[in-house]
Write a protein that binds this DNA or RNA. Structure first.
Length: 801
RNA sequence: GCCGGUGUGGUGGAAUGGUAGACACAGGAGACUUAAAAUCUCCCGGUAGCAAUACCGUACCGGUUCGAGUCCGGUCACCGGCACCA
């Protein structure tokens, strides 16, 4: 009997849709479960099997939860704003709207062919007016609350093309298009003040259940450091040069200071700095370097010593020189550092090259060779000498410094404010108007959405302007405040905007009064389980946690953390072991697999191929193993016999398998769950027959993995109903153990025999029985028994001498 | 450089400190077939042996333990994240 997967799969997909079995019910009496997968970016290339793996994990969990009686929300949508679509539009002249619709169409059909149990009534598209209206709304709330602001930054700029370039497009300091030298140009950009939420984002990690690795990456990204701010006075001025340090214990070792070349104090004192021309030359040199180049470690230190401009070390009143160097960044700390060459390798390299003194203040290293960054006894440090252990006494040390007015405790974060604009067409318009009189004015809420105008030409403008800047009827407007002439902001939001709150919209996707109804938000609450790629755990997840916490502070959402639990799947590599990519030509299209083997085989294979959290190469051969398995499941119908309950032979195996599959699904161990079902089917075939009740249990356990074939068997056998609405099997812990088991017998830890014993055998009986074995007898013959151990259900170990 | 993770057959991978290699792929032998595919049966870490069996074996070196793939210390390799972060 051949299994016709093609027609069967289509048939059940239709039946599920007709019956609406996967629709989440708002406010249902049942317990709720919200499973979230990262919504895809609908690219022209279509989906690859990696997407299928990413969704299959929670697909299995969702199907199991429904059978366990939960009201499950398992939605899908499309994160459709972004560069690839825009670039495709520029190349082909097809409007991004049209391209996006086509791609969404393609992705949807691919997803539907796999039979995912998504709630298709709640699909969202971030580029739809009804959606981005609320993205703009949240932005305006941030603007209103001072979290969205404009500031200057340095960008890679090509003076010839008059275009702002990304780091990727300006490698080696040359423009990718015209190959002329790139310069760093100061530009006004939008920022979201995510740094204000740094501590909340960090503390929130204690209240959620993320994979350890996910948590760690977020902590590193936020990069909190504790230390001190210290004020150095500048000689012959009233100026204070403020620095941040994590090592206030080394203050007596400070022999010079370094300022970032962009430090604003330099311009303020250009009259006083005797060699300002040299400073300017160095700055020009630095401006040519891209951020990428500047952060390369392996280059030699460069810099300029300021003449006529020096500082006073506040701990000992000594005069010390000030340098400028590009190893100090304007973007971290205060843009200036105290240099301690004896105990910081970078300062050491600089001091060695420029011939500055190196003073040891912590014993333990050899400062003639390299800087010593470890702990040790403090020396040459006058009133700080008593503080021997830097970790426990740093707080007390700060008290002393504070009392003397030298500095105070401080905190710094590596995380920077979020640069929130792009000079691109295909993104959410930033709803701000620039008025000559009133400055920046928010577009009134009732005018949202501020629609993205339809244009013919999507090329970015010259001088780093958005394509929108060319559309006069869009740009020119009246100020909502004073009614005078004004110009619209023409930049759009970055790709990360729409995805920062999408999980909230699934809760109430069609609401046009608010982003989501309060009662529905209260009912669905947090996302119970969020799964996605490791590549999104820093930016996307931190950005969305930030937005969510902001909305919580506004009283718009009932929980401060959006995701209760976060896991991540490993990549599917190409058959060659490389990362799948179009350029390498090693991409596997799920449609091809569904055509040849069917959706159930594809679904089973992506979960069976290995540890869900690890990367694994695609293997067309291994796929066949899953095909055989599905066929063998179908063919169980040939050996089905009448009869209720489990047969004597298989009862224990069934209880064990129910337990194993149930637990493995909860622990991302889909591969061993499927393996357990394969083991069970092998046992069934060995037994030669399967009862109806057994078959029903088997197909129910397999249903989350292979829903189509199991529904078909369920129907063919007249079991009634749909498995999608079925009940998850239960097991009896007492029935998970066999009466008799095989245990190993070791002598001095080496296995000598294997014997069958009753499961509940006592230590004495087990040891006695072991000693009856001929091989064991031979091994212990004539030796003194020192110790006898019995590990229940595992082994006997006899230690002899 | 710093912080994580991983290292097991020809391959993907299993193993609460307790029988290493479950499950599957590939390979080999056989059955069925005119033949092939499909299916079914058996074998399948290495060395020696006809075999029973013995010894070796989870990157490498050492330790703890009756017992280590698993725990501890060190080394090497690969992967991921951060990175002149003061």
């Amino acid at each position: 009997m051949n299994y016709d997967f093609k027609n069967t799969e289509l048939k059940w997909q239709q039946k599920w849709e007709d019956a609406g079995v996967f629709h989440a019910v708002d406010g249902s009496e049942k317990k709720k479960f919200y499973a979230l997968v990262e919504f895809p970016y609908p690219s022209g290339a279509g989906m690859h099997v990696g997407h299928i793996k990413a969704y299959s994990g929670l697909e299995v969990v969702s199907r199991k939860r429904r059978m366990e009686g939960y009201n499950v929300l398992f939605p899908i949508g499309f994160d459709a704003y972004g560069l690839p679509t825009e670039n495709y539009a520029i190349k082909t002249g097809i409007h991004p709207r049209k391209v996006t619709d086509m791609n969404i169409e393609k992705f949807s059909s691919q997803l539907k062919r796999v039979g995912f149990s998504f709630d298709w009534n709640r699909v969202i598209d971030t580029t739809e007016e009804g959606y981005y209206k609320w993205t703009q709304w949240i932005f305006l709330k941030m603007f209103e609350n001072g979290l969205a602001f404009r500031d200057k930054t340095l960008v890679n700029y090509c003076p010839s093309c008059k275009v702002v370039l990304s780091n990727e497009d300006s490698q080696g300091g040359k423009c990718d298009i015209c190959h002329s030298d790139i310069v760093q140009k100061s530009k006004d950009v939008w920022y979201l003040r995510i740094t204000k939420y740094a501590d909340k984002l960090l503390e929130g990690l204690d209240t959620v259940d993320y994979l350890p690795n996910v948590r760690l990456q977020q902590e590193n990204w936020i990069g909190k450091s504790t230390g001190a701010f210290v004020n150095f006075s500048v000689k012959d001025t009233d100026e204070t040069l403020r620095i941040y340090t994590t090592r206030p214990d080394t203050l007596f070792g400070v022999t010079f200071m370094v300022m970032a070349p962009e430090h604003p104090m330099l311009d303020k004192y250009k009259e006083k700095i005797a060699n300002f021309a040299e400073v300017e030359a160095y700055r020009t040199e630095c401006a040519k370097k891209t951020e990428f180049e500047r952060t390369q470690l392996v280059k030699e230190k460069t810099g300029v010593k300021l003449s006529g401009f020096s500082a006073i070390n506040p701990v000992n009143g000594k005069e010390i020189p000030i340098f400028i160097s590009d190893y100090v960044m304007m973007g971290y700390g205060t843009g200036a550092i105290m240099a301690v060459p004896a105990h910081d390798q970078r300062d050491f390299e600089f001091a060695t090259k420029f011939g500055v003194d190196i003073i040891e203040v912590i014993k333990g290293g050899d400062i003639s060779k390299e800087a010593y960054a470890g702990d040790g006894e403090m020396v040459n440090s006058d009133f700080l000498n008593g503080f021997t252990d830097k970790k426990s006494s740093i707080a007390k040390m700060l008290e002393v410094l504070e009392a003397k007015g030298i500095g105070e405790a401080g905190v710094q974060y590596k995380m920077k404010d979020w640069a929130f604009n792009r000079q691109r067409y295909w993104g959410e318009p930033i709803p701000i108007v620039h008025c000559e009189k009133c400055g920046m004015v928010a577009v009134p809420y009732e005018e949202l959405p501020l629609r993205l105008p339809t244009v013919e030409n999507f090329e970015p403008g010259t001088d780093g302007e958005s394509p929108l800047a060319k559309i006069e009827e869009y740009v020119n407007c009246t100020c909502p405040k004073c009614g005078g002439k004004a110009k619209r902001e023409t930049d759009t939001m970055p790709q990360w905007a729409g995805s920062s709150w999408y999980f909230l919209r699934y809760i109430d996707p069609k609401n046009d009064k608010c982003f989501a109804d309060k009662d529905k938000l209260a009912y669905w609450g947090q996302v119970d389980w969020y799964n996605g790629g490791m590549e999104h755990v820093t930016r996307h997840m931190i950005y969305s946690r930030f937005w969510h916490k902001f909305l919580y502070d506004l009283g718009e959402v009932p929980f401060d953390e959006p995701y209760a639990k976060r896991t991540a799947q490993g990549l599917i590599l190409g058959p060659d072991g490389d990362k799948m990519s179009k350029s390498k030509g090693n991409v596997v299209d799920p449609n091809d697999v569904v055509d040849i083997y069917g959706a159930d085989v594809l679904r089973s294979y992506v979960l069976f191929m290995g540890d869900y959290e690890k990367a694994a190469p695609w293997s067309q051969n291994s796929l066949k193993g899953c095909k055989r398995f599905i066929d063998r499941v179908w063919n169980l119908q040939e050996i089905v016999t009448e009869g209720d309950g489990y047969s004597k032979k298989l009862e224990t195996s069934f209880h064990k398998t129910i337990k194993k599959v149930s637990e493995d699904i909860e622990n991302l161990k889909y591969n061993t769950a499927i393996a357990a079902l394969m083991t069970l089917i092998n046992e069934i075939y060995d037994a030669g027959s399967v009862t109806k009740a057994e078959l029903k249990t088997f197909i129910t356990l397999l249903n989350p993995f292979a829903p189509h074939v199991t529904e078909e068997i369920n129907e063919a056998q007249g079991f009634g109903g749909m498995l999608a609405n079925g009940e998850w099997p239960t097991f009896d812990e007492a029935k998970c153990v066999d009466d008799e088991i095989e245990i190993a017998v070791q002598v001095n830890g080496k296995i000598k025999a294997r014997i069958m014993v009753a499961t509940e055998i006592s230590q004495e009986d087990a040891v006695a029985k072991a000693k009856e074995n001929e091989d064991v007898k031979a091994a212990i013959d004539g030796k003194a028994v020192i110790k006898e151990l019995y590990v229940k259900g595992r082994l006997v170990n006899i230690v002899v001498k």
